[in-house]
Amino acid sequence: MNEILPVRRGAWLRFLFPMMTLVLAVVLGGCEKAPSGPVYRIGYMNCNSEAETMHRFLPLTRYLEKELGVRFEAIPVDTQDFVERYEQGEFDFTHTNAILYVILKEEQNLELLATEKRGQYGSRTAGALVVRRDSDIQTLEDVRGKRLIFGPQLALQGYAAQYDLLLKAGIDPELDLAYYAIPHGSFKHEKVIYGAWFGAYDVAAAPVLDLEVMIAEGKIEADDFRVLAQSEVMPYCTFGAAPRVDPKLVDRFRQALLKLKPEDTVEMDGERIKVLNAALIDGFEQLLDSDYDINRDLLRRVNMPPYQEF
């Protein structure tokens, strides 16, 4: 009996050990691996507000971590502070409007990754000058001496495009309007549109995308406004990478954006979230830097950064 017992005990262990190893492997395999290594920082330009920016882009950031196996930190950034903070080396990747992309490309050699697609013009949109349907203003010439509300100054399709439309029509916004204003705080583009809708201003400088979104959401009707003039369509919000980032990681980042589908999800706070849906984006497109030349020409015409001359 004493001679047999140790043999039995060994056989039991030889069975238990591989079984436990198998169970552990299955359990660990079922878990999503937390990425390790250095933290890359993505600066997201605030579109409407800091809260909205994080709500939109945290799921996308988690998706990128999952796809690339590296750690990312999402940082909401005020539009006016973006260039300065980028210059200080705060961000490895950027998500900005098309003016900031051009500035950072020209001055810091930012690499173009992908452009977001949203609305009827895909990766592009236009700037429009609109008036209420019942307005007396019929042509751009009628805008002289009227009250106009622009979007934020660094908005290509909410400020620069409309400024350019006025200049082309022979109207100097600095001299020929009764006055113009720029709204404060968050959701500036909506404030611009409501500013004209409620009659506080005669003319609104609205990005076409914001008109589309507000109509789709039922906030306004298509025939509440008349479009007086509209710019060409130009590239919109853009992802970029700092030149110091490993080119292989940059390429994988781009591929991860381009392959994103509406059904792709991430787990966040116990919820499964659709990444594109949360980001309010239809997808991403790989534009060429030369596609932004139309933006550059416009910025030169209106004497804005990075081509501003005094």
Binding site: Q120, L211, A216, A222, D223, V227
Partner: peptide
């Protein structure tokens, strides 16, 4: 010739 107005009307019909 009011292309943009037409597109916005389409957006409304999409609702």
């Amino acid at each position: 010739g009011q292309a943009q107005q037409a597109l916005l009307m389409l957006e409304q019909l999409n609702r």
